[in-house]
Structure formats: structure tokens, C-alpha cells
């Protein structure tokens, strides 16, 4: 294949990767930014979203579009509810202590993963895409659904931006992130904000998973890769910085897509991880993170 089309296909693949990655990384970033919790179970919320999406679309056979839309709405909602309960029942009891929450979320990781193994089974199952539409470029064919994933993710990200910057809930979140105690004395129900943000983080991961499920398959181990990639993105972008996370997701996603195609996917992962190491050494607060006053 010539260089031009090759680069074009690599960019498309990179954009799909970046689109889904930005959703899940944004979730991880929100949770860290507001709660200061490193959510190790983030990838499992992603997987749970895909499993629920599969179950919903499976329950509506012959209606892939309806099944997909129902999954896009219900799966994040259910995952968010579970995350909210997990926050109230576990993280709140340990006062969102940064060290203890790491251990607690590792526990959640195993509980969610093994529950999926018991309930959903060990097989990879395909989810039917909402439509079959094939784009035939002169050099290669491409799935129309994949292209639509990029648009859907962009729309969802716009919606998240709107909620954070233009709504009362967003204001509460930003206030809690800036200074928890000041937010509390100003009458913001910080406990609820914590629960809602933890749920929102999980919902974003689940949304990404619902978008990707018809492209790849649903499998109980599918959460590991997005967890790693989300961490890479969040660390490079700056822990807690939404702008940084989005930009890093785009860079890492595109870099992953292009390096994977020109060289090898393993090299792409190595470069991403090396980038993390470099950022940690040269600019520990990340590209857009704020340096903490000493």
C-alpha cells in the first residue's frame, strides 16, 4: 500500500482509538481530579459497560439499532449506579483515603471481573453493530460504524464539557476539586458530589465500552488494556486536568494507531509507556497539571 493511503488508514484507526480512549481517560481523570482516588477498577467498569450492552442487545434480537440505542442509554446508567453504591458503601467508609482507596479499588477490580466471569462466562461474544455500512475507499474498505464511533464520541465529549462548564453540578464539581473544605463550608454537599463524580467516571468508561463493543468483542478480560491506556493518558495529560487528558488521549490514540501500523503495536505500547516515564521525570505534574506549591 502506498504511503498516502497507509497514513490515512493509520489516522482513521488512531482516531477511533483516541475517541474511545478520551471517554474512558476522561472518566479516570475526573475521579482523580475531584476525589483524589486512583481508581484501579476503572477498566472493569468499562468491561461491565460492554457486558451489559451485550446483554441488552442480546435481549432484543433482530433489532440491532434499538438494542444499541438502549445499551447506549442503559448500560452507563447501570454501571453508574453500581459505582455510586460502591462509593457510598466502600470508599466513603475509608474517607477516600488515597492509599486505602487504591487497595479498595483493586478489590473492586477482582469482584467485578470475577462476577462477569461467573455471570457472562469466559467466552468472547460479538455484539451486533447498529448498522452495517461499508465505506469503500479506492485503497481499502472501512467499516462505516467505526467512522460513526468518532462522531458519537465527539458528541459525548461536548456534552461532558457542557455539564462541567455550564451546569450547577459542574460548578459543584469544580469547586470541590479546587478546595474541598471551602466547597463544604459554602454549602456544597461534598459527599454527594463525590458519589456522583465516581459514578460519572464509571459511566464515561462504560460509554466508551458500548461504542467499542460492536467493533471488538465482549470479553471479561477486556478491561485491562483500557485501564493501562487511560492511566498513560491521565499521567501524561496531568493528573486531574481534563484539557490535558483530552489532548493526551488524542496524541496517544493517534500515535498508537500510526506507530502500530508503520512498525508494530508492541512498539506503540513501549513508546507510550516511555513517554509516561519521561513525563514523570521531566514534568511530574503532567503536561497540563498544576504544580503543587511546596
Amino acid at each position: 500500500m502506498d504511503l498516502g493511503p497507509f497514513l490515512f488508514l493509520a489516522s482513521l484507526e488512531g482516531l477511533v482509538q483516541a475517541a474511545v480512549l478520551s471517554l474512558s481517560a476522561l472518566g479516570l481523570c475526573l475521579v482523580f481530579g475531584v476525589l483524589r482516588v486512583v481508581n484501579v477498577a476503572h477498566g472493569e467498569f468499562y468491561m461491565a459497560g460492554a457486558v451489559i450492552a451485550w446483554a441488552i442487545s442480546h435481549a432484543l434480537p433482530g433489532q440491532p439499532l434499538l438494542g444499541f440505542l438502549a445499551a447506549l442509554f442503559l448500560a452507563p446508567l447501570l454501571v453508574g449506579l453500581a459505582a455510586f453504591i460502591a462509593d457510598r458503601a466502600i470508599l466513603r467508609k475509608i474517607n477516600h483515603n488515597p492509599e486505602a482507596t487504591i487497595v479498595a479499588t483493586i478489590g473492586m477490580l477482582y469482584v467485578i471481573q470475577q462476577s462477569a466471569l461467573i455471570g457472562f462466562g469466559p467466552d468472547a461474544r460479538p455484539m451486533e453493530p447498529p448498522f452495517y455500512f461499508h465505506v469503500n475507499f479506492p485503497w481499502f474498505g472501512y467499516s462505516g460504524y467505526k467512522l460513526s464511533v468518532i462522531l458519537m464520541a465527539a458528541a459525548l465529549l461536548l456534552f461532558v464539557w457542557y455539564v462541567i462548564s455550564r451546569t450547577r453540578l459542574g460548578l459543584f464539581m469544580r469547586a470541590t476539586q479546587l478546595d474541598r473544605e471551602m466547597a463544604q463550608v459554602s454549602g456544597i454537599p461534598v459527599g454527594w458530589v463525590y458519589g456522583l463524580v465516581f459514578a460519572a467516571g464509571a459511566m464515561l468508561a462504560a460509554l466508551g465500552a458500548v461504542l467499542i463493543a460492536p467493533i471488538r468483542q465482549v470479553h471479561y478480560l477486556m478491561g485491562l488494556d483500557p485501564l493501562l491506556m487511560s492511566f498513560i493518558v491521565v499521567i501524561i495529560g496531568g493528573l486531574g486536568s481534563i484539557r490535558g487528558a483530552l489532548l493526551a488521549a488524542l496524541v496517544i490514540g493517534m500515535c498508537d494507531g500510526i506507530v502500530s501500523m508503520f512498525f508494530s503495536p508492541t512498539l506503540a505500547k513501549m513508546i507510550s509507556t516511555l513517554l509516561v516515564a519521561l513525563v514523570l521525570i521531566l514534568r511530574p505534574e503532567g503536561l497540563f497539571g498544576q504544580r503543587k506549591p511546596l
Binding site: 467466552d123 468472547a124 460479538p126 461499508h134 469503500n136 481499502f140 474498505g141 472501512y142 467499516s143 467493533i215 471488538r216 468483542q217 470479553h219 478480560l221
Partner: peptide
């Protein structure tokens, strides 16, 4: 591995009608 069906489908998409 778990990705085999995705592999074959994406192969079909790549070749398209060419």
C-alpha cells in the same frame, strides 16, 4: 484467542469489494 471473530471480520472489511 478471544479476538478471532473480530480478526476475520476486519479482514473482510479491509478487502471490501476490491
Amino acid at each position: 484467542g478471544p479476538g478471532v471473530l473480530t480478526f476475520v471480520k476486519e479482514m473482510g472489511q479491509f478487502f471490501g469489494t476490491r
